[in-house]
Design a protein around this nucleic acid. Structure first.
Length: 229
DNA sequence: TTGTGTTTTATTGCCTCC
DNA sequence: GGAGGCAATAAAACACAA
């Protein structure tokens, strides 16, 4: 007879008698033959020793063979089916705990990535602003410089020419690259200084210049490892 | 004391494996 | 087809705030 059919024959009585200490058994049995069974029957929790033994066994083997369960049941004064059910419920509890743990690990990891993403977005934004400012600055400066030299400005082609040939070329290239590659930041910084000093738009005492490029760029992606994403 | 939420024990039905 | 596992669920026991 299987565990199931065995218990199914009289599940309440078998569960009931299995948990009653021998000294109480006689008294309790007085009501077994009446319809008071279901009223008198009370589901009893396993005692601490039983739980401890079951836990120990579970740690060693979460799916013990029937023979092992039977031996444990004899030792603890329980029905083999009760032990089997306990293991089943224990496995279910264990599984849901594990899922919970995995969820919190994943959530922590997600939160971390999410905050990194946010800071990278902000950084990206500030870099774009820097590029725009540099563009404006370069155009304005180049126009002034070349106006002095008698070059006529005003067309797109002239502007393009100026951008390509001005002393800010290195700076602009480096700036563009910096948006794509954080390794260029040092280059951008140096290029900016060199270009500005060479153009006379920045003296050695003007390091805290109008657009704080060096500060902003130095505080930039060099520390963020945004390429990790 | 009581209402309510949580935990534990047990059942049922379905599925897989041998 | 039987044995045993799992998911879903019931129901009793328990914990605890109001």
């Amino acid at each position: 007879m299987s565990e199931r059919t065995e218990a199914a024959a009289c599940p309440i009585a078998s569960a009931w008698t299995a948990q009653i200490p021998s000294d109480e058994l006689e008294l309790e049995l007085q009501s077994v033959h009446s319809f008071e069974i279901s009223k008198n029957f009370s589901k009893r929790r396993f005692n601490d020793d039983q739980i401890k033994s079951l836990e120990n066994m579970f740690e060693a083997e979460s799916r013990p063979e029937f023979r092992v369960k039977q031996q444990l049941a004899n030792k603890l004064g329980l029905q083999p089916r009760q032990v089997a059910i306990w293991f089943q419920n224990k496995r279910a509890r264990s599984k849901s705990k594990q899922i919970e743990q995995e969820y919190s690990t994943l959530k922590a990891s997600y939160d971390d990535l999410s905050s990194k993403l946010e800071s990278l977005k902000k950084e990206n934004e500030s870099l774009h602003i820097q590029v725009q400012r540099l563009r404006q600055f370069t155009l304005k400066d180049a126009k002034e410089e070349h106006a002095k030299d008698g070059i006529k400005l005003g067309t797109d082609e002239t502007t393009k020419f100026l951008l390509e040939t001005s002393s800010h070329e290195l700076c602009m290239n480096a700036c563009q690259n910096s948006v794509q590659d954080a390794d260029s930041l040092g280059e951008v910084n140096n290029a900016l200084h060199m270009a500005q000093i060479a153009d006379g738009s920045l003296t050695s005492t003007e390091d805290g210049c109008n657009f704080e490029t060096s500060v902003l760029l130095e505080n930039s992606s060099c520390n963020s490892l945004w390429w990790e994403l």
